[in-house]
Design a binder for these strands. Structure first.
Length: 577
RNA sequence: GGACUUGUAGUGUAGCUUGGAUAGCACAGAAGCCUCCGGAGCUUCAGACCCGAGUUCGAAUCUCGGCAGGUCCGCCA
C-alpha cells in the first residue's frame, strides 16, 4: 500500500532535513511544523533551537540549512526556501492535483492498518428512553467508529447490555406488579417511553415500601447469579425497552456491529475466574466480614484506596463483571488490535479501578475516551425531576424546523414526501454535528437554539456544498462533459486538491488521538475550500474545453471527498436539499 | 476536604498532546455581492487567550498558585 501524498511528502521532507542536518553536523533537529500561510510552504523547520549550539542567529542558520538540503531525492518537494528563522518546504501541488484528478479514491484511502478496534460505546441501561445528556455517547462513539474505519482499521462497534443489576430488576418488577391504570400517561407512544413509567413507579415505591425494596433486591440477587429461568423471564421486558431505544439510535444514525450481554460473562464462568484471579493478587485483601477488595492506595493517588470486588456474601459487583467483560474483549483482539471505550466522565473512577485491576492481571486495558455531560441551564438532566430533553423529541423538533426551511426554499418545486425526507436528514444531521464538532471533554449546556442551529458551522453548510457539487455534476453529465483531456491544474485546483488530500491524514490523526471532533473541523474546511473553488471557477460556462474538463474533474473529485467526509460524521450526502 | 476536568471576541467554538512566523471558524453587529452552474452561498470591517507567578531566546500551549463551572469520592449500577 503506497502512502497518501501527504504522508509521502512528510517522509521526504524528514529525509531531506536529516541529510542537511548530517551535512552540517547537527545531532538533533527541531520538529517540523505547518506554516500559518500555505503560500509560505507546506512544512517548516524552525531554527530557533539551533541558535545556541551553532552560536548564530536563527535566520543565518535557516539559510545554511536551506543551502545544505540535497537537490536529489526530491519527488514531492517542489521548493525549499529560507524565510527568516524558518526553512520552508513546498509540496509539488501540481502533482497532488494531478493525483486527485487521476484517482481521488486512492488519495482518500488511508493505508490499511491490519488492526482491529473493538469499540464499546453507549451501553445505556435498558430501562428507559435515551435523553440528550446520554446522546453524546452514541454521537462521539459512532463518529469515532466511522473515523477509525476511514483511517484504515477494522472496527467492531459493540453495545454492552447491562441486563443484570438493579435497573433491569426494578423495571421488570414494576412491569409485573404495577397496574398501568395507576401510572401517568407515557410521554409518547413508543415502547421505551411506555416502560420507563413502570421503572419510575417501582423505583419510587421501593424507596417508600421496604417490602418492595426487598423483592427487588431478591430479584437483583437472582439476576446477578444469572439464574437462567429468571433471565428468560426478564429478557422480554428489558428487550422490548431496548428495541425502543434502538429505534431511536437507528434514526440517529448510530450503528452497532454486536451486542454483548452482561449475563454472558457470568454464565460462561468468566466472573468466577476473574474473582479467583483477583483474590490471588498481592494487593488483594479481605474485610473481617468477608468482602474482598484490592488495595489501590499505592496506585491511585487521592482516591478511595479500597476497591471492593465482592460483597461480604461473596457475590460480584458491577465493576467485577466489567473486569471480566474486558478480559473477554482483550481476548477477542489479542495480537491483532485493541480496545477503545467511550464513557461519560462520571465513570472515570470506575474506569481507573477496572484499568488498574486489569493491569494487575496483566490484561491489556482499554483506552478510554471520556466525554463531559450535556446539561440544561437549570442543571443536570433528570427524568425524575422532569428536567430532561428526550432524544426522540429533539429529533422530531429538528426535523420539523428543517421542514420549514425546505418548504420555504423548495416548496414549489419538490413533492411533499421528498421535502419530508430531506428535512429528516438535515434536521438530524444538524443535531449530531452540533455536538460532534465539540471536543468531547468540554461540558455542553444544552440550548434548543444551539442544538437546532442550521447556520454557519453546521451540518446544512456541509450538505449544501455536497448538493451543489452533485447538482453541478448532474448538469455537466447531461451536457456530455467528462474530465478527459483536462488542462494542467493551476493554483485554484491545487488549493482544492490540497484540502481533499487532507482527508486520509486527518482521519488517521483523529483516530490516533481519539478526537472525532477533528473530523468535523476538517469537514468545514473542505466544504469552504469547495465553495471557494465553486465561486471562482465556472464549469458549464467555461469556453475552453480543456479547462472545462479540468474543472469538471475537480468538482467530481470534491463531490466524492465531501461524500466520504460526511460519511464519517453520519451526515447523509444528499444530491438535492 | 481530596482527585480529575473545563475556562479563548457579546455568544458558541478550533488551536493545547509535540511551546515558535499575522490565535482559525461561526452566530449576533456594520457594509456589500445574483443578466446566478441552487444565496442553506460569497466578500469586507470590527472584536478574544480567566487572574498571578515561574521555566524559556520565545507561553493560549509546559509548571505552580488562585478564582469560576463540571464530574467523581457506595460491599449501587
Amino acid at each position: 500500500m503506497t502512502d497518501s501524498p501527504g504522508a509521502a511528502f512528510r517522509a521526504e521532507v524528514a529525509a531531506l532535513v536529516a541529510a542537511a542536518g548530517a551535512k552540517l553536523g547537527l545531532a538533533s533537529l527541531p520538529a517540523l511544523e505547518v506554516p500559518p500561510d500555505p503560500a509560505m510552504g507546506d512544512l517548516g523547520l524552525p531554527c530557533f533551537g539551533l541558535a545556541k549550539a551553532l552560536r548564530k542567529a536563527p535566520p543565518a542558520i535557516a539559510a545554511e540549512v536551506a543551502a545544505a538540503v540535497p537537490a536529489t531525492g526530491r519527488s514531492w518537494v517542489s521548493a525549499v526556501s529560507a524565510a527568516g528563522p524558518y526553512v520552508n518546504f513546498t509540496m509539488d501541488r501540481a502533482r497532488l492535483a494531478a493525483a486527485v484528478l487521476a484517482d481521488v479514491e486512492a488519495v482518500l484511502r488511508a493505508p490499511t492498518k491490519g488492526q482491529k478496534v473493538l469499540l464499546e460505546h453507549t451501553s445505556a441501561n435498558p430501562n428507559g428512553p435515551l435523553h440528550v445528556g446520554r446522546a453524546r455517547n452514541p454521537i462521539v462513539g459512532d463518529t469515532l467508529a466511522r473515523v477509525y474505519r476511514a483511517a484504515g482499521y477494522e472496527v467492531e462497534a459493540q453495545y454492552y447490555m447491562d441486563n443484570l443489576g438493579r435497573q433491569v430488576a426494578t423495571l421488570a418488577w414494576g412491569k409485573w406488579n404495577l397496574d398501568p391504570a395507576s401510572l401517568p400517561p407515557a410521554a409518547r407512544d413508543k415502547v421505551d417511553h411506555d416502560l420507563v413509567r413502570y421503572y419510575q413507579a417501582a423505583h419510587d415505591l421501593a424507596k417508600k415500601d421496604p417490602a418492595v425494596a426487598e423483592k427487588i433486591k431478591h430479584l437483583v440477587e437472582q439476576l446477578e447469579s444469572a439464574d437462567p429461568a429468571i433471565l428468560e423471564k426478564v429478557r422480554p421486558v428489558y428487550g422490548s425497552c431496548f428495541s425502543g431505544m434502538q429505534e431511536t439510535l437507528t434514526r440517529f444514525g448510530a450503528r452497532y456491529d454486536s451486542i454483548k450481554d452482561e449475563s454472558d460473562v457470568v454464565l460462561d464462568g468468566s466472573v468466577a475466574k476473574t474473582i479467583g484471579a483477583l483474590k490471588r493478587l498481592p494487593i488483594a485483601g479481605v474485610e473481617p466480614d468477608g468482602a474482598n477488595f484490592l488495595d489501590l492506595a499505592s496506585l491511585l493517588k487521592g482516591q478511595k484506596d479500597k476497591f471492593f470486588f465482592t460483597r461480604k456474601d461473596g457475590t460480584s459487583v458491577y465493576a467485577t463483571r466489567d473486569i471480566a467483560y474486558h478480559a473477554w474483549k482483550a481476548e477477542q483482539v489479542k495480537g491483532k488490535g485493541r480496545l477503545v471505550n467511550v464513557l461519560g466522565e462520571d465513570h472515570k473512577l470506575q474506569a481507573l479501578q477496572v484499568g488498574t485491576a486489569l493491569d494487575a492481571l496483566h490484561v491489556e486495558r482499554p483506552t478510554v475516551l471520556f466525554y463531559s455531560f450535556v446539561s440544561l441551564p437549570e442543571g443536570k438532566m433528570s427524568t425524575r425531576a422532569n428536567r430532561v430533553v428526550f432524544l426522540d423529541d429533539l429529533m422530531d423538533e429538528a426535523a420539523e424546523r428543517a421542514y420549514a426551511e425546505v418548504k420555504a426554499r423548495r416548496g414549489d418545486e419538490l413533492p411533499e414526501a421528498q421535502m419530508r425526507a430531506i428535512a429528516e436528514a438535515v434536521g438530524i444531521a444538524a443535531v449530531r454535528f452540533n455536538i460532534a464538532r465539540i471536543q468531547p471533554e468540554k461540558p455542553i449546556e444544552f440550548r434548543w437554539e444551539e442544538a437546532l442551529s442550521f447556520d454557519g458551522d453546521a451540518a446544512p453548510y456541509l450538505m449544501y456544498a455536497h448538493a451543489r457539487a452533485a447538482n453541478l455534476l448532474k448538469k455537466a453529465k447531461e451536457a456530455g462533459l467528462t474530465s478527459r483531456g483536462a488542462a494542467t491544474p493551476a493554483a485554484g485546483e491545487q488549493a482544492l486538491a490540497h484540502a481533499i488530500g487532507r482527508f486520509a491524514p486527518t482521519a488517521e490523526e483523529a483516530a490516533a488521538q481519539n478526537a472525532p471532533h477533528r473530523m468535523a473541523a476538517y469537514a468545514l474546511q473542505l466544504a469552504a475550500a469547495f465553495n471557494d473553488y465553486y465561486r471562482d471557477h465556472r464549469v458549464l460556462e467555461c469556453e475552453d474545453p480543456a479547462q472545462r474538463a479540468l474543472r469538471f474533474g475537480m468538482v467530481a473529485a470534491a463531490q466524492k471527498a465531501l461524500a466520504r467526509t460526511l460519511g464519517t460524521l453520519a451526515i447523509p450526502a444528499l444530491d438535492t436539499m
